[in-house]
Protein backbone atom coordinates (compact mmCIF):
# COMPACT_ATOMS: atom_id res chain seq x y z
CA UNK A 1 0.00 0.00 0.00
CA UNK A 2 2.71 2.49 1.04
CA UNK A 3 6.29 1.99 -0.05
CA UNK A 4 9.13 4.25 0.99
CA UNK A 5 12.41 3.64 -0.80
CA UNK A 6 15.69 5.24 0.06
CA UNK A 7 14.17 8.57 0.94
CA UNK A 8 16.56 11.34 1.92
CA UNK A 9 15.80 14.95 2.73
CA UNK A 10 17.97 17.91 3.61
CA UNK A 11 17.29 21.30 5.14
CA UNK A 12 20.28 23.10 3.68
CA UNK A 13 23.28 21.22 5.06
CA UNK A 14 21.27 19.38 7.66
CA UNK A 15 20.06 15.92 6.69
CA UNK A 16 16.67 15.22 8.29
CA UNK A 17 16.03 11.91 6.55
CA UNK A 18 18.81 9.52 5.69
CA UNK A 19 17.99 6.83 3.13
CA UNK A 20 14.79 5.69 4.80
CA UNK A 21 13.16 2.57 3.39
CA UNK A 22 10.12 0.69 4.60
CA UNK A 23 6.71 -0.45 3.45
CA UNK A 24 3.25 -0.66 4.93
CA UNK A 25 1.07 -3.41 3.49
CA UNK A 26 -2.68 -3.22 3.16
CA UNK A 27 -4.31 -3.68 6.56
CA UNK A 28 -1.02 -3.36 8.36
CA UNK A 29 -0.48 -1.13 11.40
CA UNK A 30 3.02 0.27 11.72
CA UNK A 31 4.12 2.33 14.70
CA UNK A 32 7.00 4.78 14.28
CA UNK A 33 8.86 5.87 17.40
CA UNK A 34 12.14 7.52 18.26
CA UNK A 35 13.56 10.50 20.12
CA UNK A 36 12.32 14.01 19.51
CA UNK A 37 13.93 15.53 16.44
CA UNK A 38 14.73 12.17 14.88
CA UNK A 39 12.65 12.92 11.78
CA UNK A 40 9.42 11.04 12.50
CA UNK A 41 7.08 13.90 11.61
CA UNK A 42 9.13 14.71 8.55
CA UNK A 43 9.01 11.11 7.35
CA UNK A 44 5.29 10.71 7.82
CA UNK A 45 4.63 14.02 6.09
CA UNK A 46 6.66 12.99 3.06
CA UNK A 47 4.23 10.10 2.61
CA UNK A 48 1.37 12.35 1.51
CA UNK A 49 3.61 14.99 0.01
CA UNK A 50 3.26 17.61 2.74
CA UNK A 51 7.05 17.60 2.91
CA UNK A 52 9.15 17.37 -0.22
CA UNK A 53 12.22 15.13 -0.34
CA UNK A 54 15.29 15.23 -2.55
CA UNK A 55 16.11 11.56 -3.03
CA UNK A 56 14.27 8.28 -3.20
CA UNK A 57 10.72 7.39 -4.01
CA UNK A 58 7.44 7.03 -2.16
CA UNK A 59 4.47 5.22 -3.66
CA UNK A 60 0.94 4.94 -2.39
CA UNK A 61 -1.00 2.14 -4.06
CA UNK A 62 1.48 2.28 -6.91
CA UNK A 63 1.25 6.04 -7.46
CA UNK A 64 4.48 7.95 -6.98
CA UNK A 65 4.02 10.89 -4.59
CA UNK A 66 6.46 13.25 -6.26
CA UNK A 67 6.15 12.32 -9.90
CA UNK A 68 5.35 15.42 -11.98
CA UNK A 69 2.21 13.87 -13.46
CA UNK A 70 0.76 12.78 -10.11
CA UNK A 71 -2.40 14.56 -9.01
CA UNK A 72 -1.20 15.14 -5.47
CA UNK A 73 -4.49 16.61 -4.24
CA UNK A 74 -6.34 13.55 -5.42
CA UNK A 75 -3.82 11.25 -3.81
CA UNK A 76 -4.05 13.13 -0.51
CA UNK A 77 -7.83 13.09 -0.59
CA UNK A 78 -7.79 9.39 0.17
CA UNK A 79 -4.91 9.26 2.60
CA UNK A 80 -6.09 10.46 5.99
CA UNK A 81 -3.80 12.44 8.26
CA UNK A 82 -4.18 13.23 11.94
CA UNK A 83 -1.98 15.89 13.49
CA UNK A 84 -0.51 16.45 16.92
CA UNK A 85 -2.47 19.65 17.38
CA UNK A 86 -5.73 18.40 15.82
CA UNK A 87 -5.89 21.25 13.30
CA UNK A 88 -9.66 21.41 13.21
CA UNK A 89 -10.88 24.43 11.29
CA UNK A 90 -11.83 26.89 14.06
CA UNK A 91 -14.21 28.96 11.92
CA UNK A 92 -16.42 25.96 11.11
CA UNK A 93 -18.82 23.93 13.22
CA UNK A 94 -17.87 20.34 14.01
CA UNK A 95 -20.19 19.00 11.33
CA UNK A 96 -18.91 21.53 8.78
CA UNK A 97 -15.38 20.41 9.59
CA UNK A 98 -16.43 16.94 8.52
CA UNK A 99 -18.33 17.96 5.41
CA UNK A 100 -16.11 20.68 3.90
CA UNK A 101 -13.72 18.44 1.99
CA UNK A 102 -16.43 15.92 1.15
CA UNK A 103 -18.31 18.73 -0.60
CA UNK A 104 -15.42 20.61 -2.17
CA UNK A 105 -12.98 17.83 -2.92
CA UNK A 106 -15.07 14.71 -3.43
CA UNK A 107 -18.04 16.61 -4.85
CA UNK A 108 -20.57 14.82 -2.66
CA UNK A 109 -23.94 16.49 -2.22
CA UNK A 110 -24.93 18.17 1.02
CA UNK A 111 -27.19 15.46 2.41
CA UNK A 112 -24.77 12.72 1.60
CA UNK A 113 -21.90 14.58 3.24
CA UNK A 114 -23.89 15.49 6.34
CA UNK A 115 -25.14 11.91 6.66
CA UNK A 116 -21.65 10.56 6.49
CA UNK A 117 -20.39 13.23 8.89
CA UNK A 118 -23.07 12.48 11.48
CA UNK A 119 -22.53 8.73 11.23
CA UNK A 120 -18.81 9.20 11.87
CA UNK A 121 -19.45 11.59 14.74
CA UNK A 122 -21.70 8.98 16.26
CA UNK A 123 -18.97 6.45 15.84
CA UNK A 124 -16.47 8.56 17.80
CA UNK A 125 -19.16 9.34 20.36
CA UNK A 126 -19.60 13.02 19.54
CA UNK A 127 -22.83 13.25 17.58
CA UNK A 128 -24.34 15.52 20.23
CA UNK A 129 -21.62 18.07 19.55
CA UNK A 130 -22.19 18.39 15.79
CA UNK A 131 -23.34 22.00 15.99
CA UNK A 132 -20.60 23.24 18.30
CA UNK A 133 -17.33 24.90 17.38
CA UNK A 134 -13.95 23.24 17.90
CA UNK A 135 -12.97 25.62 20.69
CA UNK A 136 -15.90 24.35 22.76
CA UNK A 137 -14.56 20.79 22.83
CA UNK A 138 -11.82 19.27 24.96
CA UNK A 139 -8.56 18.22 23.34
CA UNK A 140 -9.52 14.57 23.32
CA UNK A 141 -12.85 15.36 21.72
CA UNK A 142 -11.19 17.57 19.11
CA UNK A 143 -8.78 14.81 18.18
CA UNK A 144 -11.64 12.34 17.79
CA UNK A 145 -13.36 14.84 15.49
CA UNK A 146 -10.12 15.15 13.53
CA UNK A 147 -10.00 11.38 13.07
CA UNK A 148 -13.64 11.38 11.99
CA UNK A 149 -12.87 14.20 9.53
CA UNK A 150 -10.20 12.07 7.88
CA UNK A 151 -12.43 9.00 7.82
CA UNK A 152 -15.16 10.98 6.08
CA UNK A 153 -12.99 10.94 2.96
CA UNK A 154 -13.02 7.10 2.89
CA UNK A 155 -9.24 6.89 3.13
CA UNK A 156 -7.31 3.84 1.97
CA UNK A 157 -4.70 4.51 4.65
CA UNK A 158 -4.34 6.72 7.73
CA UNK A 159 -1.27 8.60 8.91
CA UNK A 160 -1.00 9.75 12.52
CA UNK A 161 1.62 12.18 13.80
CA UNK A 162 1.74 11.93 17.59
CA UNK A 163 -2.04 12.14 17.92
CA UNK A 164 -2.03 11.98 21.72
CA UNK A 165 1.09 13.87 22.71
CA UNK A 166 -0.67 17.23 23.03
CA UNK A 167 -3.41 15.77 25.23
CA UNK A 168 -3.89 15.77 28.97
CA UNK A 169 -3.25 12.26 30.27
CA UNK A 170 -6.89 11.56 31.09
CA UNK A 171 -7.86 12.15 27.46
CA UNK A 172 -5.31 9.92 25.80
CA UNK A 173 -7.32 6.74 26.08
CA UNK A 174 -10.46 8.03 24.43
CA UNK A 175 -8.38 8.79 21.34
CA UNK A 176 -6.40 5.55 21.47
CA UNK A 177 -9.64 3.60 21.75
CA UNK A 178 -10.82 5.06 18.44
CA UNK A 179 -7.47 4.19 16.86
CA UNK A 180 -7.52 0.65 18.21
CA UNK A 181 -10.97 0.13 16.80
CA UNK A 182 -9.80 1.40 13.42
CA UNK A 183 -6.82 -0.92 13.49
CA UNK A 184 -8.99 -3.88 14.38
CA UNK A 185 -11.24 -3.11 11.44
CA UNK A 186 -8.27 -3.55 9.16
CA UNK A 187 -7.36 0.07 8.37
CA UNK A 188 -3.88 0.52 6.96
CA UNK A 189 -2.14 2.77 9.49
CA UNK A 190 1.20 4.44 9.97
CA UNK A 191 1.34 5.98 13.45
CA UNK A 192 4.04 8.11 14.96
CA UNK A 193 3.43 7.61 18.67
CA UNK A 194 5.14 6.87 21.93
CA UNK A 195 2.12 5.02 23.28
CA UNK A 196 3.76 1.62 23.55
CA UNK A 197 0.57 0.14 25.00
CA UNK A 198 -1.12 0.96 21.73
CA UNK A 199 1.79 -0.50 19.79
CA UNK A 200 1.71 -3.72 21.80
CA UNK A 201 -2.01 -4.06 21.34
CA UNK A 202 -2.47 -3.45 17.61
CA UNK A 203 0.78 -2.81 15.78
CA UNK A 204 2.16 -5.37 13.40
CA UNK A 205 5.52 -3.70 13.12
CA UNK A 206 7.49 -1.06 14.95
CA UNK A 207 9.94 1.31 13.30
CA UNK A 208 12.53 3.04 15.45
CA UNK A 209 14.12 6.21 14.10
CA UNK A 210 17.14 8.14 15.25
CA UNK A 211 18.98 11.01 13.55
CA UNK A 212 16.91 10.71 10.40
CA UNK A 213 17.60 7.01 9.98
CA UNK A 214 15.35 4.02 10.32
CA UNK A 215 17.42 2.15 12.85
CA UNK A 216 15.02 -0.74 13.40
CA UNK A 217 12.06 -2.02 11.47
CA UNK A 218 10.88 -5.17 13.21
CA UNK A 219 7.85 -7.28 13.92
CA UNK A 220 6.26 -6.00 17.10
CA UNK A 221 7.12 -8.99 19.32
CA UNK A 222 10.66 -8.99 18.08
CA UNK A 223 11.06 -5.27 18.72
CA UNK A 224 9.81 -5.34 22.29
CA UNK A 225 11.40 -8.68 23.21
CA UNK A 226 14.88 -7.93 22.00
CA UNK A 227 15.61 -4.64 20.31
CA UNK A 228 18.78 -5.03 18.29
CA UNK A 229 20.35 -1.62 18.63
CA UNK A 230 21.69 0.03 21.70
CA UNK A 231 19.78 3.20 20.84
CA UNK A 232 16.42 1.44 20.65
CA UNK A 233 17.10 -0.33 23.95
CA UNK A 234 17.92 2.97 25.65
CA UNK A 235 14.87 4.59 24.14
CA UNK A 236 12.54 1.78 25.25
CA UNK A 237 14.03 1.77 28.73
CA UNK A 238 13.34 5.50 28.96
CA UNK A 239 9.75 5.52 27.82
CA UNK A 240 8.70 2.27 29.50
CA UNK A 241 10.35 3.49 32.76
Amino acid sequence: MISIENVSKWYGQFQVLNACSTAVRKGEVVVVCGPSGSGKSTLIKTVNGLEAFQQGEIRIGGTSVDAPNTDLSKLRSHVGMVFQHFELFPHLSILDNLTLAQLKVLGRNKDEAADKGLRLLERVGLKAHAGKFPIQLSGGQQQRVAIARSLAMDPVAMLFDEPTSALDPEMINEVLDVMVELAQEGMTMMCVTHEMGFAKKVAHRVIFMDHGQIVEDERKDEFFANPKSERARDFLAKILH
Partner: peptide, 14 residues
Amino acid sequence: PRGQWQAAASLGMS
Protein backbone atom coordinates in the same frame (compact mmCIF):
# COMPACT_ATOMS: atom_id res chain seq x y z
CA PRO B 1 -0.57 28.31 11.77
CA ARG B 2 1.09 26.17 9.10
CA GLY B 3 -0.80 23.17 10.44
CA GLN B 4 -4.04 24.63 9.07
CA TRP B 5 -2.61 24.64 5.54
CA GLN B 6 -1.35 21.11 6.08
CA ALA B 7 -4.66 19.86 7.42
CA ALA B 8 -6.50 21.35 4.45
CA ALA B 9 -3.93 19.94 2.02
CA SER B 10 -4.11 16.50 3.61
CA LEU B 11 -7.84 16.47 2.87
CA GLY B 12 -7.05 16.88 -0.80
CA MET B 13 -7.80 20.58 -1.19
CA SER B 14 -5.97 22.46 -3.91
